[in-house]
Amino acid sequence: MMDAAADRRGGTRRTARVVQYVAIALALVWSLAPVYWMLATSFKTELEAARLAPTPWPLRPTLDNYRGLFGGSLPFLAFFVNTVVTCLATAIVAVIIATPAAYALSRARFRLRAATGYAMLVFRMLPLVVLLAPLYLLLLNARLLDTHTGLVVGFATFGLPFAVWMLKSFVDAVPIEVEEAARVDGYRRWQILFRVVVPLILPGLLTTGTFVFMEAWNNLIYPLTFVTTLEKQTLPAALVLTFTGQFKTDWGGMMAAATLTTLPLMIAFFAVQRSMVRGLTSGAVAGA
């Protein structure tokens, strides 16, 4: 009796195990299949990619799609460089400007501290499209429309508040005694920031920068609106704009371009994967 019961329990446990593994396998297929499809298609010929009955893998793998990107009529390399430059610039500028603010929000005492913190948080939630028209007019008047600088300004609208909050969480983690020791040693606030705090949160600066970079990389609406010359366009916007043209039926070329658009983001993502949760919920853990 006892044995039978134990057996049965062992049996259910084994069944549960099997169900669990099957579920995980399904989840992996669900997560990876589209990415596989993108890669596989990027190595197919234009004809094969457009077949009515899709082939599960490239029958005759080719690099033509990638070659076509760089040798074709579109300045694909320029798109790539534009995106890297603007996103990198946004990340660097945002982190530099945000660092003192994050430090002050974490440590300094001033009456508008809570208000400033909340404002940053609300700014972060603002729908970009609401800012779009006035920002467009602003850039127009500042003669920054259709420039990379203008695009970086646009990216700053979400990159900067985010960087402030995320960096604040890193500053919060620096033991206050270390800073007080520096005060006792006679250093002033700005010196402490640069000589003690910044070296200690260096990984945080890198992580934050990467996050901002990724968000800028993902952004479509600003380049679509603020950049009017195709040669100055970023990758996401260029994909949207050119799809009606060159790539209309060339899914192989499209997926090759998509793969190359994904690559930098993928690298950045896995570099900061560990702090992903912290990044996306920053401001969610430590109140203002």
Binding site: E177, V178, A181, A182
Partner: peptide, 10 residues
């Protein structure tokens, strides 16, 4: 000053 948790510059 000597701090409780030392406050050394890591």
């Amino acid at each position: 000053m000597v701090f409780q948790n030392y406050g050394l510059y890591p």
